[in-house]
């Protein structure tokens, strides 16, 4: 109940902030034509506010809240964002093995053979097929 109310209030908040803060800056309003740039976004945010209110008053539906899982997903996400940073600055060849190693160690993989496979062979195969065979750029 509470969690459903929580998500409903976020939806209402999203709808309101779109209408009052984001659309005025990010959409050039036009005053001719049937479907103007602002038409559909406005309808969408209006619907969001309405449905959000209904959901707030009559909260229904399942939620699947497991804090441990969320915590670890957050950590993996962080690793993924750091990897994007790494791809940008150090390139695929350096980043990919480190990235795979981090993920695999975090999951708890300790068997050396699997680690070698994931850390060296898979990135090598990707490099081989993309860079060498297809002649495409890797990050």
């Amino acid at each position: 109940m509470l969690v459903n109310r929580l998500s409903a209030s976020f939806v209402i908040f999203l709808g309101l902030s779109l209408v009052y803060f984001i659309f005025p800056i990010e959409i050039e309003k036009l005053d001719y034509g049937w479907v103007r740039p602002q038409t559909l976004p406005n309808i969408c945010s209006f619907l969001l506010i309405t449905f959000g209110l209904v959901q707030f008053v009559f909260p229904r539906g399942k939620v699947d809240l497991q804090f441990n899982q969320i915590l670890w997903s957050g950590i993996f996400m962080l690793v993924a964002f750091i990897a994007v940073f790494g791809f940008h600055n150090f390139g695929f060849i350096l980043t990919a093995p480190v990235f795979s190693l981090t993920i695999m160690l975090f999951i708890g993989e300790r068997r050396i053979l699997w680690l070698l496979l994931g850390v060296f062979l898979i990135p090598f195969l990707i490099w081989l097929s993309v860079d060498q065979i297809l002649g495409r750029f890797l990050p």
């Binding site: 993920i103 695999m104 699997w114």
Partner: peptide, 8 residues
């Protein structure tokens, strides 16, 4: 193992 499938 899942570790290698999902990291790849």
């Amino acid at each position: 193992p899942e570790s290698i499938i999902f990291s790849s």
